[in-house]
Structure formats: structure tokens, C-alpha cells
Design a protein around this nucleic acid. Structure first.
Lengths: 222, 222, 222, 222
DNA sequence: ACCTCCGGGACGTCCCGTTTAT
DNA sequence: ATAAACGGGACGTCCCGGAGGT
């Protein structure tokens, strides 16, 4: 069960989109420093958002934590919303990649889903950006700009996996793949949310183990 | 399957406990008008909180909706937090009563739990106060004062019921009653939250039906 | 030529619209203090607007000058624009009254126009509110909200007077009354503006005398 | 009545004074490109200043319109004020030249003054730089640096012309040449200002015609 | 007792006009 | 000449006490 890739799930730590391929002209000729700064700001923002939530976090707080001025933050992000959006999107754009990695393991569909959720669960208590993204999503109605719609992507991808598992006779068919996916994803996020509110995620791993036994177990074809 | 108790789940809509019977002096001899005003404020606040969330709701908004001045609101509630707390507590104090009602139906433990959650689910899309309470809870970290700790009460009461069901051999015993309760409650609240965010609760009844099949079904002893 | 009514031209000094007629119920039951405060704010704002112009005047400046906080100012005026508008409108709403007063003197049309402009000229260097209004108008494009359209009202009323004078054979008829009015009003406001910019209005009375000789003199029928 | 000199009145559009004749080294051997860039910036700035006024025009706006960065603008102009000043001065330094051209026509003094104002009037609605200069002057108090004092130059030069005309018996002498000049110039600028505010200069030519009839007509000796 | 009118501070966001590093 | 970072305010507006009516 050892997972060698305990790395962050968000794109912030991944090579940013300005990466120059060998010898080619820069795509976005930002200076190195800028991308670093941008990442630092994003990280600081994620920390404070995760701690205090969106509305109680002021731009001044964020700037102070990175040791810069508000103006500097404003140079990189047009808005407080922009910051939040960047954090959340960093999380979302990373998901397809995560799915790709897991698929490369060639597990059967149900195991793939499980592995995916396992990794996500770990991200929830190891990666500040993910925590921030989750929290920002739960406060999404407070944020003016349109954050990407949450959950839906997970539901869609899980639906595909579950449908494949049904095809193989691994999963019950009295409910559609979509319905089952919604149950699983809702339960998963409910789990992390309750653990976060009640026990600061300290019991999250255990809760997830329990939930797997019950919910994922209940998927199996009789 | 008739539901005679389609009434609101919160105490705010029920006759407030300070106006027992005509003429009897009580501990809090508030004038009739004051009680009514208080309730109206609470209701208006709940509506706006449910729509916009706590931080974007200003006292001026609330006062405007009840057609009063901010000062008037201030007379009844010491604080904006106080308002939020009152709404949430109105919800919580109603729960024991709800459990009592259901217990009076003399169902077996598992059916009792189911009935309880069924009623709660309905409250979530019919009662503004409940919606407001849920939302305020999800934004609890933004609220200074200490809201009652959420979920824990549900978990505790569900634990008792599940333990009883285990005793009777109705429910699996590979997980403790407490663990199972946490799974159920987390899944339940995850369900309502996802439905609320994604589809404005319009599919919530269906989602709950699905979830009962999967999660509550998975409780049954093999 | 003595003018007993050297009083302010703007409504701010005139009894505010909340005035209670003897014995009647209050029209707008504001507290006495409020109207006083409002007037004080308006006056302070006018002073600073007149000195520094709209964009360099901050709400904090105004609040400081009246010895209040911004919050207090905000209670009386919803906006910085609102303040500016109030000042300008105070000026405009006073105009019909002024015309009424002069008409009561039963002068012939041309003398009426002259008297009207004489009084206005005096107001320009004796009444801060008027100075502020003039300046705000000249900066109107910088102000978001819609100030009343300037000059047009003067032009219209002057047109009527000039037309009457033409009827009587007092005024030349090679140009229409409207065209003549535009010339007179433009010249008048050009005069006050140039005097204000160049000599801080110190020579304004003299300039107006000169201009009357030339421009109003040129109106006369040959 | 043909107008051969329909060209811009400001020096910005004319070859700048640092590039006298081809090949001649000068005191300021600026690179060609720099001069062009400077002019482009000035023009863009003038456009935006004329549209929005000084305070609402940001350096970013200007830089964007010329397709450069703020830093580039900063290279050519030390200051936002510097830009404004350059525009206004471009206007002023062009005036003596204009007067020279008209004098070369050998008209009598009064006709010279008329021709001068005619040309200026046309510039007001055809040349953005002039419009910008006029507007900046009207907002002069919000600009920190000292713009050249407006109007005074016109008044002085007009005084000379009018005095000459008085000498010739063309112009009335009951008022001094200076006083008459002030009347004419004030009226002229009042005219353009009112037309600009009220009708976006669309009726300016007509207004000027009317005003000439009245005001310049009134100069004539009886 | 209940409610209104006023007024008080306190930030938070936005963004602007600027210099340093490249 | 660009890209990055800097401070510094301005405006809005929010939540909230007290004076005073009814």
C-alpha cells in the first residue's frame, strides 16, 4: 500500500504553464522570479484561506505573510477573487492528471476509483492548497466570481469508472452508474467536511477507511 | 405513508416558549409584540442568510426586510452573531423533540433512524430556518461566537439507535456503532450539501432515496 | 441700487424642507440636530470643493473639517457624488425663487435680466456654496453621477426675458432670442470663470461691469 | 474665404522643435524613434485626457493605447503632470506662430483679431490636442505642477490688437483696450466651454458666429 | 419597554502613480 | 524598454453604541 508519490496534488507545485521546452522560445516570457513569487503568494493565500476562510482573510494578511506589499499581490492577481479562483482551479486542473497516473497502474475500474479517492483523501490532509480549495468551495457563495462548479467533475469521472465496473459485473445494477457515483462522491466529501469541522481532519484517515468499508463495499454486485 | 407532521422543524415557527398561556406572568415577561417582532426578525434573517450567507448579509439588509431600523434589530439581538446563533439553536433545540415524536411511533431502531433522517431531509428543503442553520454551520468559522458544534448531536443519537439495532442483530457488527453512525451522518450531510450546491436541492429527495438504498442498506447484518 | 437682500443664494441657508409650519406635524421628523449637521457638512464640503476641486477632496477631508467621522458623513450622504449633487442642486433650486423675487420688482424685461445676473454675480463671490457649485460644474465630467445640466436653465429663462424685450422693441431682432440668450449666458459664465482662475474673483465685479457695457449694451435695438 | 492652414494648431503634430533640418546636429540629438514615440504618447494622452479628464486617466490607460508599458511612458515623461504640461505647452508655444501667420496676411487690427479667434475656434473642434489642453486647463487645480497660466496670453495679445484698432478709430474708447480684451477673451472661452458641455461642440461654429455678431460688433466705434 | 435617529470608528478592497531589478 | 514590486490612500460600508422619543 506504500505510495511513493506523496507529492502535492495541485499544479502550483507542478511546473507552471510557462515552462519552456528545450531550446524553444518562451511561451509566456515571465521572469523566473515572477513565477516563484506568484507561487509563494498562492501558497500563503492558501494557508490563510484554509485557516480563516475567505471573508476573514484580507489582502493585507496575505501580503504580510509573503512579506510583500499589497501592490505586489495586486500585480499578480487582479482580485481577491482571482486568488481564490486560482487556488481552486489549481486543484481542478490537477485532477485529470491524477486520474491519468492511476489509470497507468492498470487496476480494474473499482480499484481505480478507490485508489483515486485514497489519493485525494491523503491530499486533503497533507496539501494546504487542497484544503484551501475545499474550504473555498464550501464558501463559494460568498465569493463573487464564478469558481468552477465543484463535485460535478468527480461525479462524471466516477460515473465512467462505475459504469465500466457494472459492465464487468463487479457492481450492482439496481442503481445507475450516475446515481451510484453521486452517492459515493457526496459521501466522500461529507466525510472530509465533517472530519474537518469536528476533529480538524485528525481522524480523517480512519473515517475514510470506515466509509470505504460501508459505501464502496455496498457497491459490489450481490 | 402519510406525513401528518409536515410542519416546520424549528422552534421559531412554533409558538415561542415565553408565551405560555394568557395572563400567566412568566420568567421573561416580554410583551407580545416583542416576541412577534423577534420572530419576524429571525425569519427575515434566516431568509437572507440562506440566500447570501453570513458575511454578505448586513444588518441593514435584515432590518430593511422586516421594515425596521437597524436599531430595532439591535434591541432584540445583541449582535449579528447573536442572530446567527439564535437561528442555529432554534434548529438544534428542536431535534430532541423530533426524536421524541418518532420514538412514539414505536418503530424498530433502524426504522427510527430512517424516519428521523427522512424528516430531516424534508425539512432541508421546506424550512428556511433549517436551510439557514445549515448554511450558517457551513460558514461557522466566519462567525465569531461559538455556534453549537454541528453533527455531533446527530452522531451521538444515531450511535444509540445503531447500537440498539446491533443488539437485535439487525446491523452488522464489524464496525462499531459509533463508526457506523459517523459514516451515515457524514454521508447524509454530504448528500444535502452537494445537492444544494449543484442543483439547489431540487434533486435532493431523489438523492436521499439513492443514498438510503446504498448506505442504510449497507448497515444491515449479512 | 442698494440691495437689502445680500443673503445667500443657495437653499442651504434657507429654511430646509423639514420646516414645520406652526402647529403642524413634522413633515420629515428628523431631529433638529440632523438638519444642522447636514447643513454643516454641506458647507464644509462646499468650502473644500471650492478650494481644491472635486477629485482632490476626500471624504476624510470633509469629515475632518466638520469635526466628524466619515461614518457620520455617510449617514447623511450616500456618496461623494451625492454631496456634490446636493451642493449643485441647492444652487439650482434657488434660481426660480430668485427670478420670482426679481420679477416682483416689476422691472422691464431687460432690466430684469440685468438684475438677475447682477445678483448672481454677487453670489459668485460672496457665497461659498455658489462657488463650489460653479467649480463642481466645471469639473462635472469627473463626477460619476449626473449633475443637473448646467447653463441650460439660465439660457431658457433668459430666452423668455429677451423675447419679451424684443416684443417691446427694446432688443435687436437680427438674432433670435435663444441665440442672444446663449451669447449672454456664455459670456457671463466665461467672465466669472476667467476671473476666478486668473484673479481669484477679486476683479470680478469690475469685469462684470465691463461686460455689461459691451454685451448687454449690444443687445439694444439700434 | 478659403482656409489654407487647416492644419493642427499644436506643435505636437507639427515637426517637433528638436528636429530642425535634416542632418543638422542639435543641442538635443534625440534619436528619431524617440521623438516619434514621444509624439505618439502625447497624442494618445491627449485623446484620453480630452475624453475622461486628468484624474480619471491613468498612466495604464495611456500606455495601453499606445501599446506600450507604463515604464516606457515613464522613460519619456517624468511624471503624469509632465505629460499634461507638455500637452498644454504644446498648445501655447504654437500661439505666437499662429499670430505671426495671421499678421502676415496684413489685415487691419480688428480683422486680425477676428481671424485669430476664428482659427482658434476651428482648432477647438478639430484638434484633439487643443481640446485636451483646454480641458486640462479647466482642471488645472487638480494638477500638481504649474501649468502655464491660461487666458492671460490671449488677453495680452488681444489688448495690443485692440489698442491699435482704437488708435485707428475702429474701436470704441469708453473702455480701455485691456478691459475690452478681457471681455472678448472671456466671452470666447465661455462660448466654447458652454458648447462643449451642452452640445459636445456640435453647435460651436454657430455659437461663435452669433457671438462675433454681438461681442465683436459691440467693439466698433459708434 | 420598545424603537428611531444619529453618529463613530474601523477596515477592506481596489488601484494608482512610482521606482528598482533585469 | 519590460517586468516586477512598492507604498500609499480613497471610497465605501459595516457593525455598532448612545440620546432621545413614544
Amino acid at each position: 500500500m506504500a505510495r511513493p508519490h506523496q507529492q502535492a496534488i495541485t499544479s502550483a507545485a507542478a511546473p507552471p504553464r510557462t515552462a519552456r521546452t528545450a531550446g524553444s522560445k518562451l511561451v509566456e516570457p515571465k521572469q523566473e522570479r515572477a513565477v516563484i513569487t506568484r507561487t509563494r503568494i498562492l501558497h500563503a493565500a492558501a494557508e490563510i484561506f484554509a485557516e480563516q476562510g475567505y471573508p476573514r482573510t484580507s489582502l493585507a494578511d496575505i501580503a504580510a505573510r509573503v512579506g510583500m506589499t499589497k501592490g505586489a499581490v495586486y500585480f499578480h492577481f487582479s482580485d481577491k477573487d482571482d486568488l481564490a479562483t486560482a487556488i481552486v482551479e489549481g486543484f481542478y486542473t490537477r485532477w485529470p492528471e491524477l486520474l491519468g497516473e492511476v489509470k497507468a497502474m492498470n487496476l480494474d475500474p473499482l480499484a481505480t476509483l478507490t485508489e483515486l479517492l485514497d489519493r485525494t483523501e491523503r491530499a486533503f490532509h497533507s496539501d494546504v492548497m487542497v484544503q484551501a480549495a475545499a474550504r473555498l468551495q464550501s464558501e463559494r457563495s460568498v465569493i463573487k466570481s464564478n469558481l468552477p462548479l465543484p463535485y460535478q467533475d468527480w461525479i462524471d469521472r466516477s460515473t465512467v469508472l462505475i459504469a465500466a465496473a457494472q459492465e464487468k459485473g463487479q457492481v450492482r445494477t439496481d442503481l445507475s452508474a450516475g446515481d451510484l457515483a453521486r452517492v459515493v462522491i457526496s459521501a466522500f466529501f461529507g466525510m472530509q467536511h465533517v472530519s474537518s469541522v469536528l476533529h480538524d481532519r485528525k481522524d480523517q484517515a480512519q473515517r475514510w477507511t470506515d466509509m470505504k468499508l460501508v459505501v464502496l463495499g455496498a457497491l459490489k454486485a450481490p
